[in-house]
Design a protein around this nucleic acid. Sequence first.
DNA 1: CATATTTATGGAAGCGCTTCCAAAACAATA
DNA 2: TATTGTTTTGGAAGCGCTTCCATAAATATG
Lengths: 346, 346
Amino acid sequence: MPKTIYDVARQAGVGIATVSRALNNQPNINKSTKEKILRIAGELNYTPHGLARGLARKHTHQIAAVVPFFFNYFFLGLLKNLQYQLTDHNYDLFLYSVDRIDNKETIFDRVLFERKCDGALILSLGIDDLYAKKFLRAKMPVILVDNYHPLLDSISIANIRGAKVAVEHLISQGYKKIALINGSLSSYPARSRLEGYKETLQSHNLVCRPEYVVNATGDMAQDGFNESAGYDAMQNLIALNDERPDAVFVASDVQALGALRAAKEYNIRIPEDIAVIGFDDIDFVKYVGLTTMRQPVQSMAELAVNRLLQRIDKKTSDKFQVELNAELVIRETCGCNKEGFHANQI
Amino acid sequence: MPKTIYDVARQAGVGIATVSRALNNQPNINKSTKEKILRIAGELNYTPHGLARGLARKHTHQIAAVVPFFFNYFFLGLLKNLQYQLTDHNYDLFLYSVDRIDNKETIFDRVLFERKCDGALILSLGIDDLYAKKFLRAKMPVILVDNYHPLLDSISIANIRGAKVAVEHLISQGYKKIALINGSLSSYPARSRLEGYKETLQSHNLVCRPEYVVNATGDMAQDGFNESAGYDAMQNLIALNDERPDAVFVASDVQALGALRAAKEYNIRIPEDIAVIGFDDIDFVKYVGLTTMRQPVQSMAELAVNRLLQRIDKKTSDKFQVELNAELVIRETCGCNKEGFHANQI
DNA sequence: CATATTTATGGAAGCGCTTCCAAAACAATA
DNA sequence: TATTGTTTTGGAAGCGCTTCCATAAATATG
């Protein structure tokens, strides 16, 4: 039978209030009684009951992470860092996964009203006005990570700028027929990356040919940021034959992996025939030599957690909307590496 | 201000006990009052307070997953499936990560005594007698996944057999000088895979040369199942020069990735100079053509969750220790694929 | 040494639920 | 209609903690 605070109190010959004071090292307690209580609590192997504590204190020291678990290796890295941060601050992590599009709201509602957590981190998930307001009204601290909403705190990537840097790199290597393989335009990052792509082409006086822009369509998993979408898109580009692009900016690494697979299958050499540059720098792409835009997941996690904790402690109230820059990581698939590495031969 | 059960009761003109009955659809309640209560609860946007519920019910409908978050892509796949299963059964997931070796026990204690969860899944983490007994004594249901302890339920991989299949495949391809790159022997899977490796060589009358067995040493992250350990080990094997093995069984895919990187750097062709076969079949290795032993993560997750839930519901009490078989997935690095694919040229 | 201050302590209420138990309401039987 | 049986219902206790408040002990002040 687990011990309660009453057991400790009885054993120590004091009242429960005193035990509570000792355990939470509050002031107004005699040093020696405190030591005695702590010792006895240790001997009895007593640990406070988490739920009871939460109920009495009106906060749980738990935070919820809502992730689209149809799984994207990018925010897996994010999740890892988030977890580290939270552990540092002694918060427990609830993991909610929205596996189907339609249960997103159900989960938001639970996070909002079940009161199992003091705050929430929402990863890579769009949120509409209705729910943004709900969060506000319920006074539930929330940080959007890798997404944006005007009413809420958010930490995202400067997608437009990232896309620009990527495309500009391609242009600087002499490529002129640059295509874009993108996620679904229903997602915020996809829209921004498209914008960056277009702007860059324009500012360099390159035509933006519609057949070079392949947005994932339909209500796909991961908003089209998945391997097979990349594969399909690359097939389309390859099918253009002599009108084929000489370089592709792929809006996510997973898609880029799919694109590489398609290239290999059709005997398209990378980067000789088509150069490829991705986005995210997920863990694995270094093994296939993919040039890509690295998202600073660690900083994102740090910022997100710090900010959320501040909100929870009511240390702040001003809005917080940060954009971090992605960084170009040059490997082999963009063709500017001397080694003459052929990514398509994997 | 969030609504309570009292608000609903007042609004509906009934007592709180009746509201509770309606909400948890218990028997002995008039159908029409139940409907009325449910309607009003809906109108008020009432959601029961999770902690209060847990405290009163003495169980939380939450389960803890303890994972070594120094991150291994293999049990990330596992975690994903676990999460799916749990969601299906309407359980919430607490994610505890043990990031340093020394906090494993702290976390076990918290899981055990804070009573925030009804049961625990412990992934890829060794557990000693002391804690095995603690779990038993505290009557905390627990399933070890990808590990084993005689006193506890466990679901693991038939590592010895898996290693056998891998090495036997290599032998069947005509390789005779077969090396092993392994994790740290402090881990259970590493020991078993070594055993399988040795047995197979013996049963085929091949000598088991000590310099061909590279176990990760020291207190490494992930028990030596990491990329750089694989890289280092492969370097050692390559340094053997004319005594070099003609094939390597690598005890995990992440290490295999490191091994491939080393091979590439030293211009060793895979599989012509050295064939490689991994273990796990993590998501990414298909892109580098790695032949490997696939772990059935989905079945593992299903079994683990079903079993844990049964334990929680006290539907069972007999011990449950399952070994699942890994399955050989042939790609290019073992050299039996006609396409003559060169994995080292990635 | 009496009184005023400060410090330490324990009892009790309350967090929001579930559930036991006794009472009320209703239906069925004689 | 009186009596028994069956549903429904609400009050109250209890889950294990924190915290308010009143009181007791210890210390300081005159």
